[in-house]
Nucleic acid binder design. Structure first.
Lengths: 163, 163
DNA sequence: AGCAAGTTATTCAAATTCGAAGCAACTATC
DNA sequence: GATAGTTGCTTCGAATTTGAATAACTTGCT
């Protein structure tokens, strides 16, 4: 193999992508902390639960947010103590834990969301045309789907192998 | 409510962008750890120093990587102990610290880089056409520049206000 | 010069994060 | 229907990360 790596354009795209997202996350973190006393992870968890049709298991939640399971246990403990979520047994599977958002949790999300959305708009979308937003979404969806389909290296769902 | 926030398309783009980058970072983290015994942050720091024309101050380095200053002090301590970087006084400013990469550090970056590049290619670029890579780079560059130009909320370089 | 305000880096305590290990429950295979 | 392997979650210890407080230095203003 003639060892192909990354050309200059790819390298630049990679760097600027991670840099921009880091900056974005940093600002989001600040804002959420100031406005709702939430970390970005906590907000992500609540938002995902608020969006979900029903309750989710810990694993589903962790996978969705790209987070370690033990880390989720810790955060779920905090959120439950704060009365924002509830954990309960899973009907089908006795060892699984169902996580659901409470009314108080929904209220908090609703209270924090406008400011969050505004921040994201100012940071991320202010400099982009509608067409750019769509293009970006399309490209990143393809990337996301590709990565999700790859053989898991760590925390993704396991497949059994035939020997 | 008149309150314009984010439309569905923007929301989707925002979510998929952060999700994809999280997945990417997660994979990168794994790979660097396995191959070079480096965390992603450490690699970023070394890579940036290797790229820089000369030495950088702690602040420049932290700002470049979007990282807290105290966190950088900690990591710089580790990297210096490992002989990968060197810290020294700054000529002009007596309180600043210049950070420079050592030959050993350069060697390590050179050793880890190919595998890193290969991983990024497989993750991020495998599903993208050349045109997409360029488009993505252009869009994210605009976003990055816009965010860098915004009034700092925390750790960005301060500008004096002429009121 | 002299003082107030701002910058730079480090130290410190507290919070968060992760992986490995452990435990309980499920599933397949015999 | 036992038993070995797998899966879901938590606990545990170690490493990392952060903001606040601190110390050293620089700059601007009078």
């Amino acid at each position: 193999m003639g060892r192909v790596t990354l050309d200059a354009r790819q390298l630049n795209t990679y760097f600027v992508l991670t840099e921009a997202v880091s900056l974005l996350q940093h600002h989001v973190e600040q804002q959420l902390r100031d406005e709702g006393g939430l970390s970005a992870v906590q907000f992500q968890l609540l938002a995902r639960l608020a969006h979900a049709p029903g309750a989710l298991t810990m694993t589903e939640l962790a996978d969705g947010v790209v987070y370690s399971r033990s880390g989720l246990t810790y955060q779920a403990g905090l959120l439950e103590k704060a009365g924002l979520i509830e954990r309960g047994p899973s009907p089908g599977d006795e060892r699984a834990v169902q996580v659901a958002i409470t009314d108080k949790g929904r209220d908090l999300v609703a209270r924090v969301l406008p400011g969050h959305a505004e921040g994201v708009r100012d940071m991320l979308f202010a400099s982009l045309a509608d067409a750019d937003v769509e293009t970006l979404g399309t490209i990143m969806t393809r990337v996301r789907d590709h990565m999700r389909a790859l053989p898991p290296r760590s925390a993704a769902p396991r497949k059994k192998r035939s020997e």
